[in-house]
Design a binder for these strands. Structure first.
Length: 669
RNA sequence: GCCGGAGUAGCUCAGUUGGUGAGAGCACGCGUCUCAUAAGCGCGGGGUCGGCGGUUCAAGUCCGCCCUCCGGCACCA
């Protein structure tokens, strides 16, 4: 029996689960279920990523030990799985003993092959964020994320010889064009690879919440070395148990790592590089999907437009929710999650088309055929209308398999709905309710009901990966066994005449929900959240100020800076300044070169506001600046200070201004 | 700025290696059946296929230039 191993990313536990996590897991689930139906031995893995500084600090803030904190948040991710009917075979946590053993085994293997060396991580260290900041990212000698003070520190660190693997990786990419899909993502990775690779620092001594480096416990491993290895751990890597070893032999390498597009590089470069270094086989395919946008804008917690799967599942039912996300997102592209769209899909596709079709067919059968599958006439089945439906049903099996094989779930569902439409048209053409009135046309009646019933059976079977519960109910209504044939034996025309049908009940009841009602829902407190019972702060008018909705995984959130004393704050000399000249920095997208009057001197400041402001609109404008910032060079221009601006996460910057124009040089505090 | 992707009916999208008058679903309008969840089915309106130029007997489909949006890199205070 061939096997199929598919993974989701392991989700970083710095936030509660949201649509992005749910979506990735649901897609993996549908694909896993489909492969099971194709007769493969499937291993479907998901889990949580629990180490790292951010977790250590979040735990501190919560007054918990890291492990206790991790236990709590990991539970909320695990609790999401039954809610979306995920059929995962395992749930891995990076804090489990088996994972420690696995990661350390991989480390030793990579090290023994000469790909790890000890060096000095010389760099600028931000004491606020507790991270090293690459020299090139320093902003006027300060931390780019929090603006805090950085110190030159040299920390002992282990390095991974990523640079030595550029050629092997390129060769692998050239010989395996399907390795990263869709192609757009592959192109990006290739471009990055061709640009050259630098060695990767893979250990830290600045925090302890991680997996210790073998033979040097003062170091813990850097997050990606730890996290990515989960895919092998769950398959049995690093275990002494012969059963685990056999399992690893069977399931490694994985067939598919399903990920969001924001973590392509880690999966497409780091991960295969680690494996190459260890002499292990590479996964067959890295498949990345797009992001869900909210009403066309990116989703962000700060904007308060994060979709909570629970809310929609409660209104529409799980299967309708699953159908919507599968049907709506075109593979590889971003999709918009709108109330109009989900409402439209529910009413048109599910209630009107599919639900009503099942309802009318089964009701007719109960009324006219004694609640049993009718006996079709071979001669009548040979007519073109009948053939058209049954042939389409037969062909559909292959179409759906092919679409799922390339992760085009929306295409699979679109194809299935073509059969739904065809079946509805067939019924209207045959008008069985009229045939039922004429005893002489009994054979015609039975044939004309057998055909749609059989088509419904095929539809239900093919819907099983997408809407397991609904498919089960449909099959029950048609009197089919609870766990019938796999897809390999699925063929049209095989419904058994004489089989007793189940009771009919609406699959997707009509709902009177309106878009307005759904909108209101978005502002209700989270029903499933135990974290904050308080109502979210009322949102101001939604400006165009979005932020990415990391679809899944090691999503990095901007940390909140530590408290500082008044004295510390007063070290920053903030001043009013007036812009005298402004011009875009050539060849730069974001940088604007400004000439400002600070009241004390006239100086040049480079600011990253060129995307949001026209130079003409800046001249004569009064702004706030950091006066005593160390000079820095940006695109070869020396910048003496910094212009203050605010921005929503990922949004355009807005300059800080004053209600009235103060004279240049005035202190700001 | 460089690299990549995308720009097709109001909306979401299909459109194989260039070739019957440019499509689907939704929404909208009209009609119709009555088995069915006031669902189904039929018909219809509506598009300079981002713009300009070129190759060709023939281009949404190839080439060049330009515009817009998205992403990656450079880069971001």
């Amino acid at each position: 029996m061939s096997r199929f191993y598919i993974t989701t990313p392991i989700y970083y536990i710095n936030a509660e689960p949201h649509l992005g996590h749910a979506y990735t897991t649901m897609v993996a689930d549908a694909v896993a279920r489909a492969h099971r139906l194709m007769g493969e031995d499937v291993f479907f893995l998901t889990g949580t990523d629990e180490h790292g500084q951010k977790v250590e600090r979040a735990a501190q803030k919560a007054g918990l030990a890291p492990r206790a904190f991790a236990d709590r948040v990991a539970r909320s991710f695990e609790a999401l799985l039954p809610e979306i009917n995920a059929s995962n075979d395992d749930f891995i946590r990076t804090t489990e003993p088996r994972h420690y053993a696995s990661v350390q085994a991989l480390w030793r293997s990579v090290r023994d092959n000469g790909y790890i060396y000890k060096g000095k991580y010389e760099g600028w260290y931000c004491t606020v964020d507790e991270v090293f900041v690459p020299e090139t990212q320093l902003v006027d000698g300060r931390c780019p994320t929090c603006g805090g003070v950085v110190e030159k520190i040299s920390e002992e660190s282990y390095f991974f010889k990523l640079s030595a693997l550029q050629q092997p990786l390129l060769e692998h990419y050239r010989s395996h064009p399907e390795f990263v899909t869709p192609a757009a993502r592959r192109n990006e990775v290739m471009a990055f690879l061709e640009g050259g690779l630098e060695d990767l620092s893979v250990s830290r001594t600045s925090f302890t919440w991680g997996i210790p480096v073998p033979d040097d416990p003062a170091h813990v491993m850097y997050v990606w070395f730890d996290a990515l290895t989960n895919y092998m751990t769950a398959a049995g890597y690093g275990s002494d148990d012969p059963l685990d070893q056999a399992r690893f032999e069977k399931f490694w390498p994985a067939d598919v790592h399903l990920i969001g597009k924001e973590i392509v590089r880690q999966h497409a470069i780091y991960w295969p590089a680690f494996l190459l270094a260890a002499g292990l086989p590479l996964p067959r395919q890295i498949v990345s999907h797009g992001w869900w946008l909210m009403e066309g804008a990116k989703m962000s917690k700060s904007k308060g437009n994060v979709v909570r799967p629970h809310d929609y599942i409660a209104r529409f039912g799980l299967d309708a929710f699953r159908y919507f996300v599968f049907r709506e997102m075109v593979f590889g592209q971003d999709a918009s999650f709108t109330d109009e769209a989900i409402l439209g899909r529910y009413k048109a596709d599910l209630a009107n088309d599919l639900g009503n079709l099942a309802s009318r067919v089964v009701t007719l059968l109960h009324r006219t055929c004694g609640g049993r599958v009718p006996q079709p006439s071979p001669a009548l089945l040979a007519r073109s209308e009948e053939r058209a439906v049954l042939d389409a049903a037969s062909a559909l099996v292959g179409q759906v398999k092919a679409a799922i094989g390339t992760f085009q779930l929306s295409v699979a569902l679109r194809d299935i709905w073509e059969l739904v439409g065809l079946t509805n048209r067939y019924i209207v053409a045959r008008e069985p309710w009229k045939l039922a009135k004429d005893p002489d046309r009994r054979a015609e009646l039975e044939t004309s009901l057998f055909v749609p019933a059989d088509a419904l059976r095929v539809i239900a079977e093919l819907l099983r990966p997408f809407m397991p519960t609904t498919a089960g109910r449909m099959l029950e209504m048609l009197g089919c066994p609870a766990h019938p044939a796999s897809w390999s034996t699925l063929a049209a025309g095989t419904l058994q005449p004489g089989t007793a049908l189940g009771q009919t009940a609406p699959l997707f009841p009509r709902i009177e929900l309106t878009v307005e009602a759904l909108r209101d829902m978005a502002h209700e407190p989270t029903a499933s959240s135990t974290a904050s019972p308080a109502k979210p702060a009322p949102q101001a008018a939604p400006a165009a100020a979005p932020a990415p909705a990391p679809a899944a995984t090691p999503a990095q959130e901007a940390p909140v800076a530590e408290q500082i004393s008044y004295d510390e704050f007063m070290k920053v000399d903030l001043r009013v300044a007036k812009i005298l000249e402004a011009e875009r920095v050539p060849k730069s997208k974001k940088l604007m070169k400004l000439r400002v009057d600070t009241g004390l001197d006239t100086r040049t400041i480079v600011a990253g506001i060129a995307e949001a402001y026209e130079p003409e609109a800046l001249v004569n404008r009064t702004v706030a600046i950091v006066f005593n910032l160390k000079p820095a060079k940006l695109m070869g221009i020396e910048s003496n200070g910094m212009v203050l601006a605010g921005s929503a996460e990922g949004g355009r910057p807005f300059l800080v201004g004053f209600e009235t124009d103060l004279p240049p040089g005035s202190r700001v505090r």
